[in-house]
């Protein structure tokens, strides 16, 4: 069980050494370095502009929460980060996104590599109609892992990481869709972790779950802090406040989503610079 990552210098080899033992938090995010830099990102669906001129940095090892009312482009923003926007009909992205040294918007970029490094969790858990084991095994095999022993080790590893191992170890071969909602969401997280991503994008991961399951998943996200860079979209302000290091507030203006304010989570909630942010976090608007 070893965790070998120093706070400041994090290169890709260091990232890969997190494969042993149950999940442990990495170092707290105290000296943040931007891992993803977004500059002037705009996003259009046909003639409709969903998001305009968003610029922000996602800091390595930190949890960044995006808050704001429905329809202000938070989910679209997440999809732009792993180029899932390619799959959305009529969607056009402009602006710059840099991830490590990659230009995310480069049309020649191998999106498969990008998406392996930037995992995504959806609002509704999406277990594939396969067994629990196969859910994790399938993407691993697709990315070139062939030896069954190795695959089994990873399956056990990630299921332990998300605290699901004890619950499902006796039914790895039964359908994943028979699991409860919270278990399904944790399975999806495990499936994403199996690919050893650097970043996890989470699109309201708790909103489809009951309060207890939601609490379990929230604890899990907290434990991902440090080892993974997490960007989480949430409607739940209290949750954002509890878990995030950074927060960004988006709001609709002239039918277009804009980033109103971005900063340390505490600052956004306790001393917002913008009046809109203040009224939103205090529950007066939105």
């Amino acid at each position: 069980m070893k965790v070998s990552m120093d706070d400041t210098d994090k290169n890709s080899e260091a990232q890969q050494s997190y494969t042993l033992g149950p999940l442990q938090s990495g170092p707290h995010c105290c000296d943040p370095r931007p891992l993803i830099s977004v500059t002037d990102l705009s996003l259009h669906y046909g003639a409709k502009t969903a998001l305009e001129n968003v610029s922000l940095d996602i800091y390595q090892g930190c949890i960044t929460a995006l808050i704001g009312p429905s329809g202000c482009g938070k989910t679209s923003f997440l999809s732009a980060l792993n180029r899932l926007t390619d799959m959305l009909p009529g969607c056009h992205v402009s602006g710059r996104i840099r991830f490590n040294d990659l230009d995310v918007c480069d049309p020649d970029l191998d999106v498969r590599l990008l998406r392996r490094d930037i995992g995504m969790i959806f609002q509704k858990p999406v277990p594939f109609p396969l067994s629990v084991r196969r859910n994790i095994e399938l993407p691993l095999r697709e990315h070139g892992m062939r030896r069954q022993a190795e695959i089994d080790a990873v399956v056990q590893q990630v299921l332990q990481d998300v605290g699901l191992w004890d619950e499902v170890k006796d039914r790895l071969n039964s359908p994943a869709q028979a699991l409860s909602g919270g278990q399904q969401q944790r399975l999806c997280i495990a499936r994403a972790l199996a690919l050893q991503p650097k970043v996890l994008l989470m699109d309201e991961p708790c909103s489809a779950l009951d309060p207890i399951a939601s609490g379990v998943v929230e604890d899990l996200i907290l434990r991902l802090q440090g080892r993974y860079t997490v960007v989480i979209v949430t409607h739940n302000l209290a949750q954002a406040r509890r878990i995030a290091n950074y927060a960004g507030f988006l709001w609709m203006r002239e039918r277009t989503g804009r980033l109103i304010e971005f900063g340390q989570c505490r600052q956004i909630f306790e001393a917002p610079a913008h009046a809109l942010t203040a009224s939103y976090v205090n529950g007066e608007r939105g």
């Binding site: 191998d110 590599l113 392996r116 990315h143 070139g144 190795e150």
Partner: peptide, 13 residues
């Protein structure tokens, strides 16, 4: 490292 890179590079192809 576990990943075989040729598999990944041939994606779009």
């Amino acid at each position: 490292m576990i990943w075989s890179w040729h598999n990944i590079l041939s994606l779009s192809r």
